[in-house]
């Protein structure tokens, strides 16, 4: 999409091929940054994930080895939590998309003629960022607590069993994830829909297409870049999130996600190889899912 700016009639000459020292020099800070803050930690994580308990036998003491079995142990021991993480992340992404699409469509297309309203709604979407993510999640914890108006109200209407509760259940965790990541879905969708040329929609209905057909064949494909980046921005952090599912926030013992398992292994059990191998598994799975997803939906949509 961004290429449309270049698409003037004349074809430009080939980009310069000459290797320039200045270009390398300008790249250097970026490369150094990547090496120091991405590659070094990644390699050290990989090495840690293969460590074996030291002969000293004390807690948290490990030495370099090639203990690939760490991965097998992590997967068998925490298979449920790994699957659960991706299930929750997919659910949160789908719910966020369902919630955000109409919202973004309204802001980006319907509210075009009222710039004030449009800006106001955008501010409302971004406003939650002014308050810390942790505080907002804690606020939800008390809003959804057993004696809260919401829960007692549901019970009074018999929509919830008298001994049921919301905090500490998968419902609360998926809700928290969805809530926290909605702005990440809404903003890219808005950016894509804001550029939607409504004349295409008129053309569609002029050709007697059903409004749903127009939506399916015109609006969705044109907003695909927004959907793809929104889904990536929601799914990737949601799969690794450990705040919502944490027992201190919205989760319980039955909702632990991979992030919580890593935290427990790293901070409490001091089992660094397990924590490192789980982190690598998380990265590899996300990379695989994202690769397949981007391949299928087309990389050029991201541009």
């Amino acid at each position: 999409m961004a290429f449309s700016a270049f698409a003037s009639g004349t074809v430009q000459e080939q980009a310069p091929r000459r290797k320039s020292r200045i270009a390398l020099l300008l790249l250097l800070p970026g490369i150094l940054y990547l090496v120091l803050f991405f590659l070094v930690p990644l390699v050290s994580l990989l090495i840690t994930s293969l460590q074996a308990p030291s002969a000293l036998g004390d807690i948290g003491v490990y030495e370099t080895a090639f203990q690939w079995q760490n991965y097998v142990v992590s997967i068998t021991q925490y298979g449920d939590q790994i699957l659960r993480s991706f299930l929750y992340a997919v659910l949160a992404t789908v719910f966020a998309l369902i919630f955000s699409y109409p919202l973004a469509y309204f802001i980006g297309v319907k509210a075009r003629n009222w710039p004030l309203l449009q800006n106001l709604m955008l501010v409302l979407v971004i406003a939650p960022f002014f308050i810390s993510f942790l505080l907002r999640t804690l606020a939800w914890k008390s809003l959804l607590s057993d004696e809260s108006a919401f829960v007692t109200g549901l019970k009074a209407l018999s929509l919830l069993a008298p001994d049921a509760h919301i905090t500490g259940t998968p419902v609360a965790v998926v809700f928290g994830l969805t809530y926290n990541f909605i702005p990440f879905m809404t903003l890219p969708l808005y950016a894509a829909l804001e550029r939607l040329d409504t004349r295409y929609l008129e053309a569609g209905s002029d050709l007697y297409a059903h409004p749903f057909t127009v939506f399916r064949t015109v609006t969705i494909p044109l907003s695909m870049p927004g959907i793809v980046s929104g889904v990536l921005l929601t799914f990737i952090p949601a799969a690794g999130d450990y705040v919502n599912a944490s027992r201190e926030f919205l989760g319980g013992t039955g909702t632990a996600m991979i992030g919580n398992v890593i935290e427990s292994n790293f901070l409490v059990q001091l089992n660094y190889p397990a924590a490192a191998s789980l982190s690598i598994i998380l990265m590899v799975v996300i990379l695989a899912i994202v690769t397949v997803y981007v391949r299928r939906s087309g990389t050029e949509d991201l541009l």
Binding site: S44, I47, T48, Q51, S54, G60
Partner: peptide, 9 residues
């Protein structure tokens, strides 16, 4: 990273 790779005391 190999230079400093064991964890713990």
């Amino acid at each position: 990273s190999l230079a400093a790779c064991s964890t713990g005391p």
